[in-house]
Design a protein around this nucleic acid. Sequence first.
DNA 1: CCCAAAATCATTCGAAAGGGTGACGACATC
DNA 2: GATGTCGTCACCCTTTCGAATGATTTTGGG
Lengths: 163, 163
Amino acid sequence: MIQPTKSVPRPRRGVLRDILIYGLSGGVLITVLKLIEFRFVVVEHSVEIYGALIAALFAGIGIWLGLRLTRKHPTVILKEVPVLAVAGPFVIDETRMKESGLTPREIEILGLIASGLSNREIAARLFVSENTVKTHSSRLFEKLGAKRRTQAVQFGKAAGLIP
Amino acid sequence: MIQPTKSVPRPRRGVLRDILIYGLSGGVLITVLKLIEFRFVVVEHSVEIYGALIAALFAGIGIWLGLRLTRKHPTVILKEVPVLAVAGPFVIDETRMKESGLTPREIEILGLIASGLSNREIAARLFVSENTVKTHSSRLFEKLGAKRRTQAVQFGKAAGLIP
DNA sequence: CCCAAAATCATTCGAAAGGGTGACGACATC
DNA sequence: GATGTCGTCACCCTTTCGAATGATTTTGGG
């Protein structure tokens, strides 16, 4: 649900002015370059060359300016209220479990991974060897299509497998 | 700057590399434009015109790119008001942010970690080096008292720092 | 303009994670 | 009995993390 955020008009500081100045300076630069080229050497291919130069220069300036502009107005102030009241009991749905293709043990380990435990700690808690934990985690990663445990956690949450 | 960098000649800031790539693409674009112009119409003054065009285009692209690179900043701050809300927009509370002692960048990285990205992927996404990501993550782990990234994610969620 | 905070990057090294493979026993099913 | 699944464990190997440290550069505020 999209909150009816009272979007306060963003205090855009002289962004427009900046852009304007930017554009103008661009024109001036072009002109200058043109002149220079004109009274210096007139090579057939120079067009490409100085075109590329302009492009490169503007590339740099553009990026820099972009960075600057965004960095200027770091934080926008909005008023909203998200109070999470979704403290449901962590009950696993059997259907989800089946759909995911994960075994109970794997889900259990996924939960422990999500709670921030290392493989070693999980092994200690479940009274099994670390290798076993690794095997389970590998398999559940494969089933979830995750490459990392953090990813597995995300997928698991998305699938409703873990609170 | 006496760094005897081994592998990469100039592994400076990723941004520079981007600018470089950007510039090169500019050159290509120029050439293309030149060709097009060549087979279309050959006007004397077209040089300035399409130069200005290029400049404008790159200005736009540059700004856009810059904005894109640091899109992080559109972070929003909100106030506490009891209303039941589900998964609204990922908005960060400034008070929480301050209490946590994490910098915006650190929170950003925490979010990316939570979304299951590896350090390398985060580095690529933020256009910084992997080392930088590691530094940030180390610091945020320290601040959160986490020993692992999964733990940091858990703490971050608990603290309301990440969605 | 100066300064502190923040962001950036490198280097090294040990620990943890993850992939791959093979194996074994318990259990259920066909 | 054959088959299949699950849980368990081991070994090897590569990749990734994370800690510790030092350094430089932006940047924002006074």
